[in-house]
Amino acid sequence: MTDSIASDLEPVGTPAPARVDHPAKRVAKQFVEDPVAVVGLVLFLLVALVALLAPVLAPQNPYDLAQLDIMDGGLPPGEASFGTGMTYWLGTDTQGRDMVSAIMYGLRISLFVATVSLGLAITIGTVVGVTAAYFGGRIDSLIMRIVDLQLSFPAILIALILLALLGRGVDKVVLALVIVQWAYYARTVRGSAIVERRKDYIDAARCLALSDRRIMFRHLLPNCVPPLIVVATVQIAQAIALEATLSFLGVGVPITEPSLGLLIANGYDYLLSGRYWISLFPGIALVVTIIAINLVGDRLRDVLNPRLSS
C-alpha cells in the first residue's frame, strides 16, 4: 500500500525547484547520513592516500637494499635503529626492513593490482553484458552460458591454475584477476540492462533511428550503473583479498614488489618464534582496507537501491 500512497503523492508538478539536483548529489547527501559509512569512507581515503604517496611518506624505501641494515633485522615495534637511530614503530622484518614502510609500499601494490584489474574487468564485463541484453536471443544465450561456466568454478581455483601456467608477475596477477572477475560484471550489467531494455525509452530511441551502439552505450548503460557500483565495491574488496591470497600462496606478485599478502607470508614463518609483528601489522592493514571498502559498499547499496530511495 506504500505504493499507492507514494503514487498519490508523487506527481508533484509545480514549477519544479529551480536547482538541478544531479542524481550523484542526491546519493552523496544520503550517503553521509550514516556515520559508520562515513568512517569507512574516511578510512578508505586515508588508505588510498597512504598507498598513493608511499614514496613520499615512507621513512625508507624498503626495497632499496642500500637503505637496509641487516643489523636491524627482527627488531620489535618501537625499537630504534642501531645505525641511523630512526625508530621502527612497527618493528622490522628479518632483513632489517622498516615494517611501516613495507606496509605502505605493500598497500600501494595491493591497491594498484586491485584497481587496474577492476577497471579492466568492468570494461569487459559491461560491454559483454550490455551486448547480451540488448541483442538478446542466441547472442545472449551464448554469452550467458560462458558466464555461468566461468562463475561455476571458484575464483581462487581459476586464478591458481592461470598463475601456475603464466608464472609470477604483477601483470600476470592483474590478468588472472580480470579473467576471474569480468563475469560478475557481465552478469550484473546484463541483469539490469534486461530490465531497462524493456522500457519505452529504448524503443523511443530505436524509433528515432539511433544506432545500436549509441543506444547501448548512451541510453542503456548509464541506467545500469547503480548496481554496477555496488558490485564493484564488493568485488574490489574481493580482488584485494584474492591477490593477497595468491601472493601468500607464492604464486602472485614477485618478491621484488611485495604486496600485503606477500608481507604476511614472509612473516608467517616467524609467527611462532614470537616475532608476530612481521605478519600481524600487514594483516591488520589488509583487514582495515577491506572493512573500509565494505562499509562504503554497504551504504552505497542502500542509497542506490531504487526500491529504498524513490
Binding site: P23, K199, Y201, D203, A204, C207, A209, H219, P222, N223
Partner: peptide, 24 residues
C-alpha cells in the same frame, strides 16, 4: 533511405516516465 523512412513515423508512448531516459 531506411533511416529517413523510419524518422517519418514516430511513436508517442503511454508511460510518460519510462519513455524518457532518466539520465538525460
Amino acid at each position: 533511405e531506411a533511416r529517413d523512412a523510419a524518422l517519418k513515423i514516430q511513436m508517442v508512448f503511454q508511460d510518460p516516465m519510462s519513455s524518457l531516459n532518466p539520465r538525460l
